[in-house]
Computed example of a mutant assay.
Amino acid sequence: MNKSYLFIQPLDTLFFRSGKPFSKGEEAFVDSSMVIPYPSVIWGALFTSLCINSGEERLQKFSIKDEDLQKLQVHHIYLHNPVLGKTLIPAPLDLFVDDKREYFFTEKYINNTLSNVPFSTLLKPSIKDTEREENLFINVEDLFESYTARQNYRTTVYTPDNFSTKNPKVGIALSKTSRTTVNEQFYKVEMVEFAKNWGFLVEYESNYAFDNGILKLGGEGKLASFKKIEQPKIPISSTDIEQAKYVKVYIQSPTFWESGDGIEELNNIDGFELVSASIGKYLSIGGFDVNKKEPKSMKKAVPAGSIYLFKKENNNSNLADIIKTLITDNTANCNGFGKFQVIPFKAN
């Protein structure tokens, strides 16, 4: 299968839930929609379209076999605007914003003097009166250019307000038997509406062709259009990695680790020393098993944007291959999860 690319453009507001628990009647506010859904959401929408357009009957019988899952492999998911020529990914979690909220700066690492922290260096802001923020986005080219320039280099960072707006929605639960409203089960959600020309760029592999069409996406099955596009110019590696003494592993999509945060696994790689990390709050990711007709158990995942900093002890090992093997052990049949980039780090 060859890699192809789809541009998915929402035609309505969307709602992508996190794994945060919610019970109507006990809580009034459900959650704010995530901007980028979990890869499984995109995979599910495309797989449904694949089954329908290819005449498959298994979908109607709610029986999906392992060989069916291999018909579609989702790789990277980006925020994309083809008119502006912008392709965004979650910003690394070792960027800081100043008190004027005008510029963003990369970090610095200092020697660790705290014995209860499992790293030889600690992350600190490179400029006074700055703080780390989450839920930010960066142009994919900047990940390999301005971001690697290190301290005090100003990097353009985008907030969700730059390409989307939140739309509140109020609802109330309905009885499954009478289809009438249920008392004391009022709730409120915040949907996300993308600005003009913004959508999702999806890198995938499939034996079946996706050309143009409509699919249902997210909570409430809102409509989105999709069309196949030519391969965009997206950097996926750096030529400076072999010469760099330090390298960073940037987590591009939610990643599952047996230990939860990946520290245990990544702290035992021959030829590399894990010297520091900047990890976001873990995600709880589940789903629904259509074969068993029951929810899947929740699993912890490290969020996109998390950073692991390594010091190279020799040049004989390929860090990307090692980490790919480690991640694969925990992401079997998890299309789109566990994606990462290895980039050089210009240490002090």
Rank of each mutant, 00 (worst) to 15 (best):
L93K: 07
A304I: 04
S23M: 10
E67K: 12
N162Q: 10
L326F: 07
S120A: 15
S278V: 11
S178W: 02
G221R: 07
N318G: 02
E258N: 15
A347L: 12
D211E: 09
G218A: 07
R150Q: 10
G199K: 01
K24F: 08
D240V: 00
A149Y: 13
I36K: 01
F340D: 08
A320R: 07
K188G: 04
T48W: 11
K346D: 09
Q231F: 12
E56F: 14
A277V: 10
K166L: 11
M298W: 08
Q9V: 03
S178N: 10
A332P: 01
Y78V: 09
L114M: 14
Q231N: 14
V35Y: 01
G44S: 10
V140F: 11
V182H: 00
D261G: 06
F337C: 06
P295A: 04
I323G: 04
F104M: 08
L6Q: 08
I229G: 04
I279T: 09
K3Q: 14
T325R: 00
K296A: 01
I110P: 00
K346E: 09
S317G: 00
M1Y: 13
E27F: 15
L6T: 12
G271Y: 05
L217G: 05
A195T: 02
Y153V: 05
Y153L: 03
A320W: 02
F7C: 03
T155H: 06
S126Y: 00
Q341P: 00
